[in-house]
Amino acid sequence: MTQLMPHNDIQIAVGKFGEAVIGPQRQQLTVAVHSGMAPIRTLSSGTVRMAGGHHALPHIHAESEIQVYVVRGRIASLVGPDLTPLLHGPGSLLYIAPGLEHVGVNLDPYEPADLVEFCTDPAFNADVIRIDGLDALAETRVTDLRREYLLGRCDEQLATPSVHAVTR
């Protein structure tokens, strides 16, 4: 529940994180700042929690730009029509352009990963469209990445925070 607190010439909306929901991309999402809380025009935010061994389903954000910050965990993003893998450790930031195919992957089979996502969808995650045609390729990429991770071949890339911007 959002509470409005008038203060001089401004209003301060104070809310709590909503309940976690599973989005169409099979991600556990908790909305934070969104258009239901304030008259947001272009920016919302929330958290994403990925259980150990979890990966999202292939999807796009039809109109929204997103930025994802890795708080905890070792993550891979599969991006573009060929699901090119990018690795992200804690402190990493990823930008994904609107309409770009992607899949989030928690590389660790046991430890959860926590992310903060910012997007230009005022409602947070309302313009997600599943891309069913990439499911088989995603499964292959995820299996290969997890093997590489368990063999320690990703450690060097995951040790240093990275910044990736993926556009067409």
Rank of each mutant, 00 (worst) to 15 (best):
residue 76 A to M: 04
residue 94 L to K: 13
residue 75 I to E: 01
residue 76 A to F: 05
residue 86 L to M: 13
residue 84 T to D: 03
residue 103 V to P: 06
residue 81 P to A: 10
residue 67 Q to L: 15
residue 67 Q to D: 05
residue 77 S to T: 02
residue 86 L to A: 12
residue 85 P to T: 11
residue 89 G to T: 03
residue 69 Y to P: 03
residue 95 Y to D: 01
residue 77 S to Y: 14
residue 90 P to G: 04
residue 88 H to R: 12
residue 89 G to K: 01
residue 89 G to C: 01
residue 83 L to N: 00
residue 94 L to V: 13
residue 94 L to D: 07
residue 76 A to T: 05
residue 91 G to C: 02
residue 97 A to G: 14
residue 102 H to S: 02
residue 93 L to R: 07
residue 103 V to F: 09
residue 72 R to K: 12
residue 103 V to S: 10
residue 101 E to C: 05
residue 99 G to T: 03
residue 73 G to F: 01
residue 89 G to E: 03
residue 98 P to H: 14
residue 90 P to V: 04
residue 79 V to F: 05
residue 83 L to K: 00
residue 90 P to Y: 04
residue 103 V to Q: 09
residue 98 P to T: 04
residue 91 G to T: 00
residue 67 Q to S: 11
residue 81 P to F: 03
residue 98 P to D: 10
residue 79 V to S: 05
residue 104 G to C: 00
residue 92 S to H: 12
residue 103 V to Y: 10
residue 100 L to V: 15
residue 78 L to E: 04
residue 105 V to E: 09
residue 73 G to M: 03
residue 68 V to T: 15
residue 74 R to K: 06
residue 92 S to Y: 12
residue 69 Y to W: 14
residue 71 V to C: 07
residue 105 V to F: 15
residue 94 L to G: 04
residue 77 S to P: 00
residue 89 G to Q: 01
residue 88 H to W: 14
residue 105 V to W: 15
residue 87 L to N: 09
residue 98 P to C: 06
residue 92 S to A: 12
residue 99 G to H: 06
residue 75 I to S: 01
residue 69 Y to K: 14
residue 80 G to M: 08
residue 95 Y to N: 05
residue 74 R to E: 13
residue 104 G to S: 12
residue 86 L to G: 11
residue 96 I to R: 14
residue 71 V to W: 04
residue 101 E to K: 08
residue 77 S to L: 09
residue 75 I to W: 05
residue 89 G to M: 05
residue 106 N to D: 06
residue 83 L to Q: 00
residue 86 L to E: 12
residue 71 V to I: 12
residue 79 V to H: 04
residue 68 V to Y: 06
residue 84 T to F: 04
residue 106 N to G: 13
residue 100 L to Q: 15
residue 81 P to T: 11
residue 96 I to N: 07
residue 86 L to Q: 15
residue 82 D to K: 02
residue 89 G to H: 07
residue 92 S to G: 12
residue 99 G to R: 08
residue 94 L to P: 04
residue 85 P to M: 13
residue 83 L to M: 01
residue 102 H to K: 09
residue 106 N to P: 12
residue 77 S to C: 06
residue 67 Q to V: 10
residue 88 H to E: 08
residue 78 L to S: 11
residue 81 P to G: 08
residue 96 I to M: 14
residue 67 Q to A: 15
residue 99 G to N: 06
residue 73 G to E: 01
residue 81 P to V: 09
residue 90 P to D: 00
residue 101 E to T: 03
residue 81 P to Q: 09
residue 92 S to V: 10
residue 82 D to E: 07
residue 101 E to F: 06
residue 105 V to S: 08
residue 105 V to H: 12
residue 75 I to Y: 00
residue 79 V to W: 08
residue 98 P to V: 02
residue 98 P to L: 06
residue 81 P to Y: 07
residue 92 S to F: 11
residue 96 I to V: 15
residue 77 S to H: 06
residue 90 P to N: 07
residue 91 G to M: 02
residue 69 Y to M: 13
residue 84 T to Q: 06
residue 91 G to L: 01
residue 100 L to P: 07
residue 95 Y to V: 05
residue 95 Y to F: 09
residue 70 V to L: 03
residue 68 V to D: 11
residue 74 R to G: 02
residue 105 V to N: 10
residue 80 G to W: 15
residue 97 A to S: 14
residue 89 G to V: 01
residue 88 H to Q: 15
residue 69 Y to D: 09
residue 90 P to E: 10
residue 80 G to N: 05
residue 97 A to H: 12
residue 79 V to N: 04
